[in-house]
Design a binder for these strands. Structure first.
Lengths: 342, 342
DNA sequence: TTGTACGCGTTATCAC
DNA sequence: GTGATAACGCGTACAA
C-alpha cells in the first residue's frame, strides 16, 4: 500500500519526473518558461500523484494567499448574503476563495475580524460601509492590504467604495411620498450607531422634509433592529400614539414586512389606513400583500463590482475608482394617498 | 519613521523582549509553560509592536490552519445562509474562520471546491447532503480531513451527519394533508438530480400516498428550481391542467411563495380553491398571506451542531455521533379541507 | 532551459 | 523554565 499519510509535495513530483523542484514550480506557475518535453513529463507526474500545492507554503513563499476576506454584519440578512454570493462567484472565477467573518453589527468584533483576516494574509478585504476607527484604515494601509467598502459610496473615502448614495436614495423616496400628500411621517430606521448607511438614510428623510418646509417635529423617528418583530413593535407604538402618521417609512424591507404584519394584526388596512415603504427591494417585497413600495438596490451588481474593484487593486492598479450604483424607487401597492384626516 | 513595510515577526518580539522565539511562541500558545516574569515582558513587547502571528507559517509548522471550509449550493437561499451564519458563529468562538465555496448545485463545481479547500489545508469541511462520488469521500479520508454532512441524516453515512430525515418530514406532512381529505395532490419538488434531500422529500410524499392507498398516478409531480418564478410557473401549469389538484405541496417555502403569488394572479383563493404547503419555515412563511403551512427545520441549531460535530472530530474524537434534528409541521392558513369537487 | 540553495514565520524537539 | 535548531512546502534569485 502507498502511504496515505500526507499529500505529495513538490519534491515528490520532482523526483517522479526526474527534474528539480524549481522546474516543477515553474511548470505550475509560469508554464512557458519550461520546454514542452519536460513540462509534459512533469504534468504527467503531477496528476499521476494527484499533487495539489500546499497553499500555506505557497502563501509564505510568494506572499499571496489567493484568498479574499470579507466582514459583513450578518449573513442572516438576505441582502448581505446575496451580494456576498455574487462577490464570491466573481472571485472564484479569478481563482480566489472567500474567508468570511461576521461582526453582528459590533464595531469591536469587526475590528477583531479584520486583524484576523490580515494575520491570515488575505490579499484583499471587503468591508461594509465606511464608518470605523481611523486606526483600522491605518492598520490596513500599513499592512498593504487592498480594501473596498460596499453598500456606501463616496469619491474620497479612506478606501475605494462600491455602492450607492443612501442619503440621496432615501431623500428621493421621501420626496415621492410627500408628493402623494403625506404630512405626518413615521420612519422606522435601522440602528444608526456605527452605521453610516442607516445614518445616511435618516439624513435623507430629514433633508426631504426640510426641503418641503415640513417642521422637523412632524417626523416620528425610531431606530430598530433589522428584523421582523422590531418592525412590528415600532409600528404598533407609532400607530397607537395620539397622532399616528399616515405613512411609515422603513429602513429596510424586513422591517417593513414586520410593520405590515402588525398592521394586519391591528386590523389596519395598507395603504388605506396607513402607507408603508421599505428599502432594498428584496424578493420579499413582491411577495407580501400588498406589494411593497421600496428602493431597488442592485445587490448582485454591487457584489460583482466590489470583487472586480478589489482584484484591480490586487493587480497593482494605482487609483482604482469607486463605483456609484444607481438605485431606483419601485412603486407598488403599499403606498397611496393619505385618506382625509380629521 | 518606523518601517511600515512588513508586519513584526516572532523574532522581532523575541528580540524586543530579550528572549528566544521559542519562548515567545510558548507565551502565545501555552502560557503556563513559561514563568510569569518573562511572560509579562513578552506580552508587553507583543502589543507594543502590535504583533499578530502569521497564519500561513503557523499552519505549516503546526499542521493546522484554524480554518474550516464549507461548500454550499448557494448563499442566495436564506436557509443555507442562515445555517451557515450559525455555523460560522460557533466556529468563531473556537478561533476558527470560515472559508466558503459555493457549488451552484453543480457536482463538478463542488468537487473542485472540495479539493481546493483541502489544498488550502482546512482543518475540517462542511458539506450539504450525502450524495456525491465515492471518490470524493476517499479523497477526504486519504487527506485526513474531518467532514460533516448537513441537511441530511443517516447513522451510517460515509461521514457523520447533522440534519433531519427529509423523507420522514415530508411523509408526515403529506399524511397530515391527506387527513384533511385531499385526494388529488400536486408536488412541486426541488431538482432531485444529485440532491438526496430533494429525493428524500419526493419519496416521502410517494410513501404517504402509497400507505393511504392512493394510486401513484394521482400524484402530479414536477421538479423546479428553488426560486419564486419556478414555483409560479409550475403552479400555473398544474392548475391549468384538466383535473387540477386540490392541494399543491412545494419542495420549499420559496417555491410555495411563488405558487401563492401565482394563485393570486390567477384569481384563485388559497386555501379556498387550492391549498399550498411549503418546507423550511423561513420567516417568509409567516409573512405571506395566507400564512404558509410548512415544515419547521431548526436551521440555526443545525449550523451550531454541525460546527460542534466538526470540532469534536478535529479534536480527535473517534466515533462522533451523527445528530438527528427534529422537524415539525406548522399548521397555518394555507392548508384547509378541499372544497367539494364535481 | 534547468538546477542549487536560501528564505518565508512558526512550531516542536531537543538539550541545557 | 528557556534556548538553539531542525523541519514545514514552496518560490525565486542566482548560477550553470
Amino acid at each position: 500500500m502507498a502511504k496515505s499519510q500526507s499529500a505529495p509535495t513538490l519534491e515528490d513530483v520532482a523526483k517522479a519526473a526526474g527534474v528539480s523542484t524549481a522546474t516543477v514550480s515553474r511548470c505550475l506557475n509560469d508554464p512557458n518558461r519550461v520546454i514542452e518535453a519536460t513540462r509534459k513529463r512533469v504534468m504527467a507526474a503531477v496528476d499521476q500523484l494527484g499533487y495539489t500545492p500546499n497553499f500555506a507554503a505557497r502563501a509564505m513563499a510568494a506572499k499571496r494567499s489567493l484568498t479574499i476576506g470579507a466582514v459583513i454584519p450578518t449573513m442572516n440578512n438576505a441582502i448581505f448574503a446575496r451580494a456576498l454570493q455574487a462577490f464570491q462567484d466573481q472571485l472564484a472565477q479569478a481563482g480566489y476563495m472567500l474567508l468570511v467573518g461576521s461582526s453582528a453589527y459590533d464595531p469591536v468584533a469587526e475590528r477583531e475580524q479584520i486583524r484576523n483576516l490580515v494575520a491570515r494574509g488575505v490579499d484583499g478585504i471587503l468591508l461594509v460601509g465606511f464608518e470605523r476607527e481611523p486606526e483600522t484604515y491605518d492598520y490596513l494601509k500599513r499592512h498593504g492590504v487592498p480594501t473596498v467598502a460596499a453598500w456606501t459610496y463616496s469619491e474620497d473615502g479612506p478606501v475605494p467604495s462600491v455602492g450607492f448614495d443612501n442619503h440621496l436614495a432615501m431623500q428621493s423616496l421621501t420626496e415621492a411620498v410627500l408628493s402623494y400628500g403625506h404630512q405626518r411621517i413615521g420612519f422606522i430606521a435601522g440602528k444608526t450607531e456605527g452605521n453610516d448607511r442607516a445614518k445616511g438614510r435618516v439624513d435623507g428623510v430629514i433633508a426631504a422634509l426640510a426641503a418641503a418646509g415640513i417642521p422637523r417635529d412632524q417626523l416620528i423617528l425610531r431606530e430598530a433592529d433589522y428584523d421582523i418583530s422590531a418592525g412590528a413593535i415600532h409600528f404598533r407604538e407609532m400607530m397607537d400614539a395620539p397622532h399616528p402618521p399616515t405613512v411609515i417609512l422603513c429602513g429596510n424591507d424586513v422591517i417593513a414586512a414586520g410593520a405590515m404584519r402588525q398592521a394586519s394584526r391591528m386590523g389596519l388596512s395598507v395603504p388605506g389606513d396607513v402607507s408603508i415603504t421599505g428599502f432594498d427591494d428584496m424578493e420579499l417585497a413582491q411577495i407580501i400583500t400588498p406589494a411593497l413600495t421600496t428602493v431597488y438596490v442592485p445587490h448582485d451588481e454591487m457584489g460583482q463590482r466590489a470583487a472586480r474593484t478589489l482584484l484591480q487593486q490586487i493587480e497593482g492598479a494605482e487609483d482604482v475608482a469607486s463605483v456609484k450604483l444607481a438605485t431606483k424607487i419601485v412603486f407598488r401597492a403599499s403606498l397611496a394617498k393619505p385618506t382625509s384626516v380629521p
